[in-house]
Design a protein around this nucleic acid. Structure first.
Length: 440
RNA sequence: GUGGGAUUAGCUCAAUGGUAGAGCACCGCACUGUGGAUGCGGUGGUUGUGGGUUCAAAACCCAUAUCCCACCCCA
């Protein structure tokens, strides 16, 4: 007796069945197209990196979520990549001959040992696009415009992108006299403003041992209208970093406007923080509120990261698009185009009986030669079973060659959706099907 | 990593300590040249897993796994 191993998946990991892969491929296809339209080129890097490559880049919280790996002989400490940004930085540092600005995109799985939830998995795909080698805010603006293009082409109407700047965040701390060591706590508290409100933030700041005086200054500051950049510049007069951040915000707004980005969908939010340590300039994040699933995209500028791998640091800005969440949201909101279908197969060629099999085989191969995705039936079964199969799979057309058809070299083409049938010369079948499939 | 909820047929869910059920799906027949309609019949469960309490456990207790929710963080 064979003993079976109970088939199970590791926590937070999933299989993606063919029907789901069709949706996934559609989303990735749109993203890839837009990336390339904006001049980004594909890049692939290994799933495993040396642990030392990844350590110390994301912050201590993130590092706890990194998967460790090793060779059998244990000679190198390895880790599954946590994102695509640090591997890009490593790769750019290793390849100084790359022509700058270097624009690459990468669509690949990353791994994080978080507690899984909806829209939150331990293995998930990120779609990243980054621009290496320019400090111009035009690049940051272009990234944002590209994100908007992607979301729009996928059919998203209701979304808001929040824009902030790490320099402003830093200046906020300086202005309020928060000791640099407590800046992390300040950021985390600010980040929660949406959820816990003003008083909640006050409480949170107190818990983080931020001086009472500073707390008042901060709360007063974030109560100011965010759009009034002149006032902010004035407030930050004594803090050059803050002025620089405000100027960057202004430039990003100007450039995105020039690119046709709807200003109502791009909002400055000085309490939007983002968790990763490596950001240095503009940061942004796109959220949908319905359904509530967290951020769909996020990104920002990280001018210091390559400097950790090379004596020649390079400025970089980029974004990550979360296709897992996009797919979850699109399914929930039924945003996928109807013509996507359940299967890639376009026609099933049935086999009437042994005598007629040869004609069915020939016709199948003939359709395939014409570029049509065609299946044929393998076993000796009635037409009923074969058509039932086609219907269950969502195959749009079936072809039947019985004794009547075989006698005159025609075949019956059945539209599974409508039940309509017509007889077509076997030699014309490919052309007729191609025409019909064009309108599907 | 912390706290809460869930887990029974392929799917959605019933059964409150006493014989494990329904709908849908699947298979077959009515219908051996035609799927989705209807009718009839059928297959399918060591109740997530491992212990314990009890004459008796799907149910009560303990542990464990996975999923969901919140926190944390994020795509």
């Amino acid at each position: 007796m064979a003993t079976f191993v109970e088939p199970r998946l590791p926590r937070g990991m999933r299989d993606i069945v063919p029907q789901k892969m069709i949706l996934r491929r559609y989303v990735i296809g749109v993203i890839e197209q837009v990336f390339e339209r904006f001049g980004f080129e594909p890049l692939q890097t290994p799933a495993l990196e040396l642990a030392q490559t990844l350590m110390g880049k994301y912050g201590p919280d993130a590092e706890k979520l990194m998967y460790a790996a090793r060779h059998r002989d244990g000679k190198e400490d390895l880790a599954l990549r946590y994102d695509l940004t640090v591997p890009l930085s490593r790769m750019v540092a290793m390849n100084p001959e790359l022509v700058k600005p270097f624009k690459r995109y990468q669509i690949a799985p990353v791994w994080r040992a978080e507690r899984p939830q909806k829209g939150r998995y331990r293995e998930f795909y990120q779609c990243d696009a980054d621009i290496v080698g320019t400090s111009s805010m035009l690049a940051d603006a272009e990234i944002i415009a590209m994100i908007f293009t992607i979301l729009r082409e996928l059919g998203f109407q209701e979304f808001v992108t929040k824009l902030n700047n790490r320099k402003v965040l830093g200046a906020l701390g300086e202005y309020a006299g928060v000791p640099p060591a407590l800046l992390g706590g300040l950021s985390r508290a600010l980040d929660k403003l949406d959820k816990i409100g003003r008083e909640g933030v006050r409480e949170e700041l107190r818990k983080n041992e931020i001086p009472a005086e500073s707390i008042e200054k901060i709360l007063n500051l974030i109560a100011l209208p965010v759009d009034d950049l002149a006032t902010w510049r004035e407030k930050f007069r004594a803090f050059p970093r803050g002025v620089e951040g405000i100027n960057e915000l202004e430039q990003v707004l100007q450039y995105t406007r020039a690119m046709g980005v709807n200003p109502a969908r791009l909002q400055i939010d000085l309490t939007m923080v983002r968790g990763l340590d490596y950001y240095t300039g503009p940061i942004f994040e796109t959220v949908v509120t319905e359904p509530k699933i967290g951020s769909l995209t996020g990104g920002g500028r990280y001018d210091g990261l390559i400097g950790l791998f090379s004596k020649n640091p390079l400025p970089v800005t980029g974004a990550s698009v979360g296709i897992e969440r996009i797919i979850d949201v699109m399914q929930e909101l039924k945003m996928f185009p109807d013509n996507l279908g359940k299967t890639v197969t376009q026609v099933l060629v049935t086999v009437f009986d042994a005598e007629r099999r040869a004609q069915s085989i020939a016709l199948t191969m003939n359709l395939r030669a014409a570029g049509i995705n065609a299946e044929m039936w393998y076993d000796d079964d009635g037409l009923g079973k074969q058509l039932k199969y086609a219907a269950a799979r969502g195959i749009p057309y079936a072809v039947i060659i019985g004794p009547d058809e075989a006698a005159s070299n025609v075949a019956t083409l059945r539209d599974l959706a409508t039940g309509e049938q017509q007889q077509i010369a076997q030699t014309d079948m490919a052309a007729v099907l191609q025409e019909k499939l064009r309108h599907l």
